[in-house]
Design a protein around this nucleic acid. Structure first.
Lengths: 340, 340
DNA sequence: CACTCCTTGGAAAACGCTTTCCGAAGAAGG
DNA sequence: CCTTCTTCGGAAAGCGTTTTCCAAGGAGTG
């Protein structure tokens, strides 16, 4: 057998019409008599018949696949969200096609286009929108094109496109964290702000500032260092912060992986956290819950973001794009001990 | 526009035949005159034409998609390998469909079947084979069916199926680790062995034992504890080991995430590593390189496993299934200090 | 100038399925 | 016993491409 059996093969072998074979093998409202039904089923099994999804997609108009675009699948933030999506997709009998932009935000639009070619049922855009209006415009165009077919689109990020969106309360979370840190006695902060074009980073910084402002605390501009949204980004940024000899007692990294980089850098500079410097992060990445000192952070239920996004995209479309807010919760741990 | 433009639409609008339009828009060896070429291109752009991949798949017989099956995408081990696959796939212009068995090995065969329906070009099975012969038989059947179409299959794991395989030198790596630990002065070991049905776990344990045997050291059976292949599995297993009050000075966890769980458990039992107990892992997971004390482990270039697997599956098939050995390298760090 | 060879465009046949429309046969109703 | 419904099987028309085969015209060749 160097070519897989087709429905026609099965029908011929079973001595029935194509229509009957199709009705038996691939769900239909129509009933088929027990006799024929049985015959079709057994011949299909004998021939190893496997429906050609492409052919089905052609006549049905869409494929039972949902496309997911993330920035970096090796980053636990994204892989956790992806896990949530896949969990739900599995329940719905959908396959998940996953693409990674490798942190080049302009690739997102390319992948949406690729998914349009595939006529996938839905696309989920996971990850921060950017501040670049041109990128946004291009993405919006592709999204509209995709939707003008039968496709659905949702995002896990900020609400910048007219599509269903699961938005993480980055500002509120960061604000709450700031307040808690102040309550613990911290007053002088440094911030590892991440890339300035990523709204997630921007929002978390803004929320943090806002929380401090409530207590009359401000952060000097040279206490805020940008950098990559990665462990190494956090490491480098922390080095820069120390080089500036700023007078701070607590470093807020806008995500956990950067916070871990920061702790490593502090150690390398003989300022081991938390005694010489407190550190806080954001996300509560599961894999990082065991670093020492245990990291104060803001918990986001990442898998749930993925689940919710898939639910949105599979459910009835609303008359107007919906927004689901995802709560965050401050988790205080050893990396930010109460001061004295 | 509530239905996307088809090739026929473009052809009609541009006043050319379907054949010509197809040749212009979707690569072909045939040359089309500059005039027509131009006309087709502009009308396609105007109409927002996007080739229907399903239709192309039907006539070509396969989709430009590669399926990947992992055990748990949220586990950094798998997400790193997946990142490698995706990196290469991107270069080859392929989409990646990712499925997670959620650690139920019997689901692998199901996903291979699903990918067969999709007529994806290739499938990569990532993750340990098991010791269950029934599971293996079922998987083999599905793999053969898949291959009897035009599909290619490769695995990242042990060589148990007649397909191209990237095999991690688990035994050699674990043996080398054992020898290094002995050289550091350790003699009494406990092992967190993971699930006994996973060959990866089994092989690492066997290799470790083998390395110790070279030095006349054996491990008592009650110094070996099974458990889940996860952080919590490591935590629980360590608790069990301590409860047994075995006399050991070093714990070898068959993967890093378990090792991290072990360190947490040790701390909770007031036996902080490495002073009260040394710990070693396996994999050198990037996200875990910053735990303290830094973890002694065996480095595997995970992303490279993924890249290699994709290369195998896209390259010319060998006359007979090929095997690519992936080297491991012992990395000694602070979690296993030299004993005086 | 007659012939062959190339180049380029088009018609039409697949590819494997779903679904609409028909028709036959049996059941129900008068 | 005739008519009207049901029920169930089959023929055939797509779905949107690619690709083979033809044909026409122009460029080379002797």
């Amino acid at each position: 057998m160097n070519r897989s059996a087709t429905l026609a093969d099965v029908a011929r072998e079973a001595g029935v019409s194509l229509a009957t074979a199709s009705r038996v093998l691939n769900g239909s409202t129509r009933v088929v008599g027990e006799q024929l039904r049985e015959r079709v089923l057994t011949t299909a099994a004998e021939l190893n018949y496997s429906a050609n999804a492409a052919a089905q997609a052609m006549v049905r108009g869409h494929l039972d696949v949902v496309g997911v675009v993330v920035h970096d699948i090796a980053d636990p933030y994204f892989s956790s969200i992806a896990a949530g999506v896949m969990e739900r997709a599995e329940q719905a009998g959908l396959l998940v096609a996953l693409s990674s932009t490798l942190r080049q935000p302009d690739r997102e639009a390319d992948y949406v286009a690729a998914f349009r070619r595939q006529r996938v049922r839905a696309v989920i855009l996971v990850g921060s929108r950017t501040t670049d209006p041109a990128q946004l415009a291009r993405l919006r165009t592709e999204v509209e094109r995709f939707e003008s077919g039968r496709g659905r689109v949702a995002a896990v990020s900020q609400r910048r496109l007219p599509i269903d969106t699961v938005v993480v309360e980055n500002r509120a979370g960061a604000r709450a964290l700031a307040e808690e840190l102040v309550a613990l006695g911290y007053r002088r902060f440094g911030v590892l702000a991440g890339p300035s074009h990523l709204l997630t980073a921007v929002d978390r910084l803004a929320g943090f500032r806002n929380g401090l402002a409530h207590h009359g605390i401000t952060i000097d501009d040279d206490h805020v260092v940008g950098g990559e949204f990665t462990r190494d980004g956090g490491y480098v940024a922390t080095g820069e912060l120390l080089r500036r000899k700023v007078d701070v007692s607590c470093i807020f990294a806008v995500n956990d992986v950067m916070a871990v980089g920061a702790m490593a850098a502090l150690r390398d500079h003989r300022m081991p956290p938390p005694r010489r410097m407190a550190v806080a992060g954001f996300d509560d990445i599961a894999t990082l819950r065991d670093v020492t000192p245990r990291l104060t952070t803001v918990r986001v239920d990442l898998e749930d973001l993925g689940r919710t996004a898939l639910d949105l995209v599979l459910g009835e479309p609303g008359r107007t794009p919906r927004t689901r807010m995802a709560r965050c919760e401050v988790v205080l741990r050893e990396s930010t001990p109460a001061t004295r």
